[in-house]
Simulated assay, not measured.
Amino acid sequence: MTAATDAAKSDLRRYLQEARDALLWKLDGLPEYDVRRPLTPTGTNLLGLVKHAAGVELGYLGDTFGRPSGEPMPWLADGAEPNGDMWATAEESREDVTGLYRRAWAHADATIEALPLDTTGRVPWWPDGRDELTLHHAVVRVIADTHRHAGHADILRELMDGAAGESPTGTSLPSDDPAWWKAYRDRLERVAREAGRKA
């Protein structure tokens, strides 16, 4: 491998790991009910986002490149309930789902390490004739998907208990003062009402 390839893979893994860590962090300190609680009309919930992200990694960075993980994913079986990867059953513990996700990381990271970025794979669930992509494309796709769901998780967690930001040590928020946030939110509400009256 060239130094440029090593650097590219290092960058991709770093951004992917940051998204993974952010997604899992959103579960910290919450009771079992809260990690499973549907908080949107479409049922979005924290543990379901983690379960979905595990399946995405195992699919795009495993099966697509002829590297099946051997992990059972019953939500993909013929006749499986629609959207089964977006929530955890009562029988699936938090540890089951987060353990699956961590094993998915290891499997995906091994694929990234083992193959050149220009390796072509076939996505089994894409239509014939449009089912090829490179490893580089697959990793970027997984990074984008994981960051998107980490953002969903951030909003869900903030709605539950006010915890927000990208990590426990670096929230990238301008303040941690609840009074500042209340004044800020109140100001935005006033601006929104004013703009609404003008429309």
Rank of each mutant, 00 (worst) to 15 (best):
M1F: 08
T2L: 11
T5S: 13
A8H: 10
A8N: 07
K9G: 06
D11V: 12
D11E: 13
R13K: 14
Y15G: 08
Q17K: 09
W25F: 12
L27D: 13
L30S: 09
D34V: 06
V35D: 05
R36D: 03
L39F: 01
G43M: 02
L49G: 03
L49S: 00
V50P: 00
V50E: 00
H52K: 04
A54I: 03
V56I: 14
E57N: 04
L61A: 01
D63Y: 07
T64C: 09
T64Y: 02
G66Q: 00
G70C: 00
P72W: 05
P74H: 12
L76W: 13
A80Y: 11
P82W: 09
W87S: 06
T89H: 13
E91M: 09
D96M: 11
D96G: 08
V97T: 02
T98I: 05
G99F: 07
G99D: 04
L100T: 11
R102D: 07
A108L: 03
I112G: 01
E113A: 15
A114R: 06
L115R: 02
P116I: 01
L117N: 08
D118N: 12
R122Q: 10
A138L: 07
V139Q: 12
R141Y: 08
V142H: 09
A144V: 14
R148A: 07
H149P: 10
A153M: 10
I155G: 01
R157N: 10
A163D: 14
T169E: 11
T171R: 10
T171P: 00
S175M: 06
P178F: 12
A179G: 14
W180N: 08
E189V: 15
V191P: 08
V191L: 15
R193W: 07
A195I: 02
A195S: 06
G196Q: 14
K198F: 05
A199S: 14
